[in-house]
Nucleic acid binder design. Structure first.
Length: 421
RNA sequence: GGAGGAGUGGCUGAGUGGUUGAAAGCGCCGCUCUCGAAAAGCGGUAUACGGGAAACCGUAUCGUGAGUUCGAAUCUCACCUCCUCCGCCA
């Protein structure tokens, strides 16, 4: 959510933002709703002021007749007030509704574009592994080594269901531990986060109302998170932090659930697109300072690149174009990791910053050096998402004999250096 | 799941229909005193929105939301959260 004062003063920026993000949004309608809401608030406040003042008088009066007369008058006023209050409530609801839909302003460095095809590659790290044989895809590798069971996964869990087995499980756990340990070494606080959370956390992080279709809801009106970002940001909702506590760097692990509504035909095989997975996520809350946000955004990206480099995985970084960044995001990088069997890169990480878009919704503030409370800034990035990263990890490390080398940095967590049958 | 109890400002805590946005204490800030500090004394210390050039004014907020009333922290209802006891349980 943006500051309405900012919108009043810069309607053009919001209009441009919506256009760049390819999000339909009527700025004039919002400004009109803002004007209406304020007019009606004045109506309500004036009547309330009179009611309050008169009620105080009544409390002090002795003359029963005069008192009764005023009470009658106030009854009349209250009927009028009720109408005005209803009118205000309607206008305010309309205003809030539009405010929740207003996109954040993308950074000027965000390229124009109509789809993810227009994302700009920034750099590549490493080279595609050279194979003296035709590399197998991850589904085949998993099957040959008995590392997963998709048939029974679907039997048990339905479409996109899967079981991981044997060393694939150890590998998954090793990745979490590796990521957790690396990042906690950099001062990120490790957290295990709830994945079953209440609605306000989704609204607060900017996923609701527009993204409700993508989320599982329970019969208790709680929802399953698609990322620990939702619960970790929710953890700080309604807090006023001291500036000395910032930046607060956290690394959280949680199960993640995504309905993948609208992507039924896509990536139907294997571990790429599943309804249920595990993810280690970096989340930062920092001062309301653009340069600090930018700097920490780069840090989050560098952290994830470092993890991939230590794992020895070939990847590239792309700068997402306007159409491929979310409502609240100012700027986003994706890291895409090389998938040999497809000879292309697949998204494994997503790093974004929000300025105060999320914290305004979450009412997450801090007290600055002058004692002024401000909305903080927030950012996040994937550290490692499993099992998706296993696709690249297995495929890039496969050998001619069908075995799979385990990256050196993971070996201490698993106790083996190769998977073979 | 069953039975009770409770949610007031940064904190403790008073307040059961009428100048209560809220006593008192603690904390914090400023001043006085002091070479300095402590102590003591005095004064000040919530947030949001709206109006205004400003001073300032208005409105809302005592867990949240509805309601009763001329008037609600105080009465009613629903919800949320916490505590105690019983049951169940990884």
């Amino acid at each position: 959510m943006l500051d309405i004062k900012f919108i009043r003063e810069n309607p053009g920026l919001l209009r441009d933002a919506a256009r760049k993000k390819h999000i339909p949004f009527d700025v004039e309608k919002l400004l009109e709703a803002d004007r209406t809401r304020r007019e009606r608030q004045v109506d309500v406040d004036a009547r309330r002021a009179r009611l309050n003042a008169t009620s105080e008088d009544i409390g002090r009066m002795d003359d029963a007749d005069a008192k009764q007369k005023l009470i009658e008058e106030m009854r009349e006023l209250k009927r009028d007030l009720a109408d005005k209050e209803k009118a205000f409530a309607d206008a305010d609801a309309e205003f809030q509704n539009l405010m929740y839909q207003a996109p954040n302003i993308p950074d000027p460095s965000v390229p124009d574009g109509a789809s993810d095809a227009d994302n700009k590659e920034i750099r590549r790290w490493g080279t595609p592994p050279a194979f003296s044989f035709a590399p197998k895809d991850h589904v085949t590798l998993l099957h040959n080594l008995d590392l997963a069971d998709f048939d029974n996964g679907i039997k048990v869990a339905g479409f996109r269901g899967y079981f991981l087995k044997r060393e694939a499980v150890l590998l998954e756990i090793a990745l979490w531990q590796f990521a957790m340990r690396e990042l906690s070494g950099k001062g990120y606080i490790p957290i295990t986060a709830p994945s079953l959370v209440r609605e306000e956390n989704f609204t607060g992080t900017g996923y609701f109302p527009q993204g409700k279709e993508d989320v599982y809801q329970t019969q208790d009106n709680t929802y399953l998170v698609g990322t620990a970002e939702v619960s970790v940001m929710g953890m700080l909702r309604d807090e006023t932090l001291a500036e000395s506590e910032l930046p607060r760097k956290m690394v959280a692990i949680s199960p993640c659930f995504r309905r993948e509504a609208g992507s039924h035909g896509k990536d139907t095989k294997g571990l790429y697109r599943v309804h249920e997975f595990r993810k280690v996520e970096q989340v930062i809350v920092c001062k309301a300072d653009h340069m600090e946000s930018v700097q920490l955004h780069e840090e989050l990206l560098a952290n994830s690149e470092e993890l991939l480099q230590k794992l020895g995985l070939h990847y590239r970084v792309v700068l997402n174009c306007g159409a491929d960044i979310g409502l609240g995001q100012v700027k986003k990088y994706d890291i895409e990791t090389w998938i040999p069997s497809q000879e292309k890169f697949g998204e494994t990480h997503s790093a974004s910053y929000f300025h105060d878009f999320q914290t305004r919704r979450l009412n997450l503030k801090y007290r600055d050096a002058e004692g002024v409370t401000r909305f903080a800034h927030s950012l996040n990035n994937t550290a490692v998402a499993t099992p998706r990263i296993l696709i690249s990890l297995l495929e890039q490390n496969q050998q001619a004999d069908g075995s799979i080398r385990i990256p050196e940095v993971l070996q201490p967590y698993i106790g083996i250096d190769v998977i073979r049958r």
